[in-house]
Amino acid sequence: MPASLSSTKTAAALRTSARASAELLLVLVAVSAALWLLGRMWSVVWPLIVGLILTTLTWPLARFLRRHGWPPALAASVVTVVFLLVAAGIVALIAVPVASQSGELADGVVAGIQRVREWAAGPPLNIGDAQITGAFDTAVARIQNSIGSMVTAVVTGVSTVINGVVTAVLAVFLMFFFLKDGPRFLPWLTRQLPGRLATDVPTVAARSWETLGAFVRSQAFVGLIDAVLIGVGLWILDVPLVLPLAVLTFVSAFVPIVGALFAGLVAVLIALVSNGLTDALLVLAIIVVVQQLEGNVFQPMIQSRGLGLHAAVVLLAVTLGGSLAGIVGSLLAVPAAALIAVVWNYLREQLSTPPQEPDTDEQDPTTAVPS
């Protein structure tokens, strides 16, 4: 005779499920409210994020100067001036030529897509499906429309330019204060928080800072190596637009997985249009070799402690960030996921049950020495 369900256990299970669902709903509401508040304060939060990222790049030099007896204010001032000079040099030597060739770069990508479409329509593929042809036409039209929109925004978007300048100025000032007063922040935070929070919040903040700094510095260095190696390969093959493609490779390195695929696709399309199929395949081979060196040599050497995120998590984070906030979301997705992982790991450490210590009072009979 089959066993009947226990009404007491069923009611208890339903109450537990209802309580868990209500708690989960409250957590989701709190997260939604936090995200809404973050969006409303984005004009302040975005300069703060940029300032933190710049601080992670410049902190090693400031720390070196402070350890050699420089006053904090003087060290922060020197590092800030050096950073501004380097940034101005980059704008003068790289950004101006890249901006002057950006239209040619975009036209080359569109022409490369059209070239691929024509190749797919001929032998041996002989793809003649009208839907596929329409999809290619739609993609080309969207790219052209996007280019026109971007040019229009650059020409007429005065408010956007002003907001960008204000963000940059605020970020530089915040970087200066972070460099000068950053080491005093955690002790001050500890004194302001009550009870258990005085230990938990500074610990999570310190771990988050280490993770963010490791990610930004390692990605910048690896992106620089990729840009130099791929740029040299493009220069040897006499592919046009070497400097814009190298800069695109460096910037794309901050978007793991997806960024490398995008930069490589653009380089191959430019080589296909300008130099032909043979050079395009050679460019593809160079990119594959460089990416293999990055994944198997550069990253393990430069970033000894990874972010602790699986490649699938990184890919999903970049996709979600891009769909929610565009380019900014793609850039911030992986650091945000890494910081969430830091908080989760700390919570798991605090909530886990410590291992049972062996009872030293009871003697193991197998090791007892007979009297």
Rank of each mutant, 00 (worst) to 15 (best):
M1A: 08
L125N: 02
I257F: 05
A73S: 14
T160Q: 08
G321F: 05
V288D: 05
G51C: 11
R217P: 08
Q219K: 15
L35Q: 01
E104A: 12
P71T: 12
V116C: 09
A311W: 05
P240G: 13
R348F: 07
V91E: 06
G308E: 05
G213T: 11
F136W: 12
Q219Y: 14
V165P: 02
L281I: 13
D279N: 11
D107H: 10
A111M: 03
L179I: 03
V290Y: 00
N275L: 11
V201T: 06
P47M: 13
G195I: 10
V204P: 01
V216G: 01
P202I: 11
T203L: 10
V91N: 04
A285W: 00
Q350H: 07
A20S: 14
A263M: 03
L84C: 14
L48M: 10
R66W: 02
V255I: 15
L315S: 04
A73T: 14
A227L: 03
T152E: 14
A139P: 00
A205N: 04
A214D: 12
S371I: 15
V154G: 15
L54H: 02
G128S: 15
A3W: 08
D181V: 00
A13I: 09
I162V: 15
F262I: 15
L35Y: 02
F262S: 13
L269D: 05
L324K: 09
V343L: 10
G213W: 05
P194Y: 04
L170G: 05
G103A: 09
L38D: 04
I257A: 08
Q192M: 13
E362N: 10
P355T: 11
Q363R: 01
I287A: 15
S17Q: 10
G69P: 01
V204F: 09
V343W: 12
V172A: 13
W209L: 09
A336T: 13
V27Q: 07
I147D: 06
A120V: 11
A168S: 10
A171W: 00
T366L: 06
